[in-house]
Design a protein around this nucleic acid. Structure first.
Lengths: 250, 250
DNA sequence: GAAACCCATTCGGCATCGTCGAATGGTTCT
DNA sequence: AGAACCATTCGACGATGCCGAATGGGTTTC
């Protein structure tokens, strides 16, 4: 682990959490001398990874990170497949569709298909949700046992009163998810929101993502056909990625 | 400039240009020993900035960069304003709308409003276009003279046969753009595509972005009302950002 | 089927490069 | 007007990253 690179990424992480920070604020959060942080910050700035406000004092993320993010999406074969099938899934279910991948203990949304009712909705690509509190995350974790072990501590982060905070309870639920290859979530991440998701496998049989629908908690349970539609979308994408079967047992 | 941080970002840049590379490929492109690159790559990997393929050999960008990109968008006040007015501009003009910011010699798209005809269009957020070959870029450069000086060399990068490659010609055109606060582009970046754009100013009177429409080159010239609509969108967003007037002379 | 090659990764010593304390200069608050 | 704060610069020390060489796994070649 190269120290200065590690620190640089930690600086980006701090700026990610708090949109706009002064040098000394960044330094104190990382418990590093301001001059050390300054050197790294200037290097990041020279590449457009961070920019400083016009009043020349506070720092924030820069346009270069957006460029990187877009290229990441383009390299993902999963995403291009998801785009096609999300449309059908949204139409069949009448709900918004999300596709996500796992990073450490979080799910990052790589595609978002708005509800087909034509209403205006915020694009959600790039947002992250704790894996243990989302249907997408549970669908992935159920088929990635070694990732589950990495969930640190004996208490998971609570988002709402419904969030599963006990790792043992989560594990039990994941065992159920693995059987059906279908995960659900009811107000565990966001109050008023529920979801269904199924895992997507690649050619080597690894769970590389998950696709699912998001619906108002008030509409629970959704029509039986929605469950089927989610599973079929996941199966179809997996097939296009070359998966030998669906689901692929963990 | 911290050497290892600089190298880390350069590695990300290389992976950005070529989606998937082996360690030795990255090393040779940067003219660095493989072992040096390896250490940095492993640090980036530990943070999810890069991931390696399942066959454990090639590297590519990771989900963490997408997360960063999304947070960057959220921190931009310009973006939230642009969302509102883009919708109106798309409706009035009948064309797709783009909003962008300048990084060095490129424009990064921070918002994209699809053509209002309901057809399916790829989201373009995060794509980059050489500033000198786009209406958005020209609208920005015309009000940022010091940025123009940074355009390196005596020959600008050519994208199509119409691209302005002579800096002198570009400067002359930018002088015109500055007068009208309206820039145009015809097949200079992409064959078959033309655009109109106007600059957006913030509270301190600095050009922080540009908004414009994209249309098929065959539809040139667009209706006079489209020119007006672009200028009004730029003026409205600038006002919301606290700009003292519009345009703000460079 | 064996051998040779290529490539990712690991290791350790040397010197470089990053780190940090202190000094500077500018800006804001009292 | 003074004081306090903060971003930034500078320089010396030494910890740290750099790189050449060694290792080992995997794939191609003959």
């Amino acid at each position: 682990m190269i120290q200065s690179v590690d620190r640089a990424i930690r600086i980006l992480g701090v700026l990610q959490g708090a949109r706009r920070l002064s040098l000394s604020e960044v330094a104190s959060r990382l418990e590093l001398p301001p001059s050390t942080v300054h050197g790294i910050l200037k290097t990041l700035q020279a590449h457009g990874m961070v920019v400083q406000d016009r009043d020349s004092t506070r720092y924030q993320l820069g346009p270069a990170v957006l460029k990187l993010g877009n290229v990441y999406l383009d390299t993902l074969e999963l995403r291009s497949r998801a785009v096609t099938w999300s449309e059908e899934l949204a139409r069949r279910s009448g709900h918004a569709v999300r596709t996500g991948v796992l990073t450490f203990d979080e799910v990052v949304i790589i595609h978002h298909e708005p509800r087909p009712d034509g209403s205006r909705q915020m694009p959600e690509v790039g947002i992250v949700i704790p894996a243990h509190a989302s249907a997408l995350g549970k669908a992935l974790l159920a088929f990635l046992p070694e990732q589950v072990d990495e969930l640190t501590g004996d208490k998971l982060r609570s988002m709402t009163s419904e969030t599963l905070v006990d790792p043992a309870v989560l594990r039990a639920q994941l065992a159920e998810v693995a059987k059906e290859a279908l995960a659900t979530e009811r107000e565990e991440a966001v109050l008023g929101e529920a979801g269904i998701a199924a895992p997507i496998f690649d050619a080597s049989g690894v769970a590389v993502g998950a696709i699912g629908i998001v619906l108002p908690a008030a509409d629970w349970p959704p029509a039986e056909s929605s469950f089927t539609a989610v599973r079929e979308a996941a199966r179809n994408i997996s097939r296009e990625l070359g998966a030998p079967r669906w689901p692929v047992p963990a």
